[in-house]
Design a protein around this nucleic acid. Structure first.
Lengths: 153, 153
DNA sequence: TCACGATAGATGCAAATGCATGTAAATCGG
DNA sequence: CCGATTTACATGCATTTGCATCTATCGTGA
């Protein structure tokens, strides 16, 4: 408890991260206990979700890896599993002989949509009673700003 | 892209969670690439950290499990590993014959402090340039509020 | 053009994780 | 007080993960 947070900038930053991380754990723990995660693990759903948001439909494996908290090799095998289950499709990258392009199959898109709907419902049930719309917008703004600063080198 | 976020409450909540989660992933990815995580995996450090913050020094295994994003069985084995490495000590719970109490050993406390220092430095280097102190305080407040609402049933 | 270093992804292997289940102790209902 | 249910933690086993390494391709400088 007790976070004076009027102290050193270093301490404030650490407390802020700690709070962000714990909130993420608390929400995630609740989400994972729901039925939406039976069919697909978090990281697997995350890959389908990211692909579903991709405008061109195709995404490079290494780009995917920036979004997901997984090592390169684990992502490689995760995608291999998704392919075996018929949820994603692979294609060698046209401009780069090393690369691999990924996209959702129809089955993958359907599954993502279905889980996504449940997911959104669960999230809303957790967030809406916790924060006012105005607070949510502020949290959205701050976390986007943080992410932009951190991943944009 | 495009998050008008003036739409439905459900959509706003989902976008807020998405942003929070991605920010967490982005920061965590950077932290894990640092040298502070060589000695100890995230979840292992997290256990030592939580124990270090515990006022009485002793913590029940199931209480620990609320803080960490791990299944009960995984936490059980993680603690077993930490004990084998001499970082934590176990004790049967006095009031409850089923329970197990945990505390840091001196070696565990030292290691936590050492990694914690590096950790705080890395976090500060990521957060401080991203958000003003005032923004950090607001993010801290919002995430603590969210966590309180979610974990407090 | 070609040797060299960097990058994308795959793979062997050991370690970590989760699910289902087991054991023991606590709690509850009658 | 006793049997049934629940809770806390441990364990067997299959799956997932990460590290180190490998192969193939790309980019670069001489």
């Amino acid at each position: 408890m007790a976070s004076p947070s009027g102290e050193s900038p270093v301490r404030l930053a650490a407390e802020t991260w700690e709070a962000l991380f714990r909130a993420q754990v608390a929400v995630m723990r609740r989400l994972q206990s729901g039925p939406a995660f039976k069919a697909l693990a978090l990281n697997e759903y995350d890959v389908l979700f990211t692909l579903s948001r991709c405008p061109s439909g195709w995404l490079r494996l290494n780009e995917l890896n920036d979004n997901v908290l997984l090592s390169q090799s684990s992502l490689s095998r995760l995608v291999e599993r998704l392919e075996k289950r018929g949820l994603v499709e692979r294609m060698p990258a046209p401009q780069d002989g090393r690369g691999v392009l990924l996209k959702l199959t129809d089955a993958g898109r359907d599954l993502q949509k279905q889980i996504g709907r449940e997911h959104v419902r669960d999230i809303s049930a957790l967030i809406t009673p916790a924060l006012t719309p105005s607070e949510q917008r502020e949290l959205l703004r701050l976390t986007e700003k943080l992410r932009g600063s951190v991943s944009g080198h």
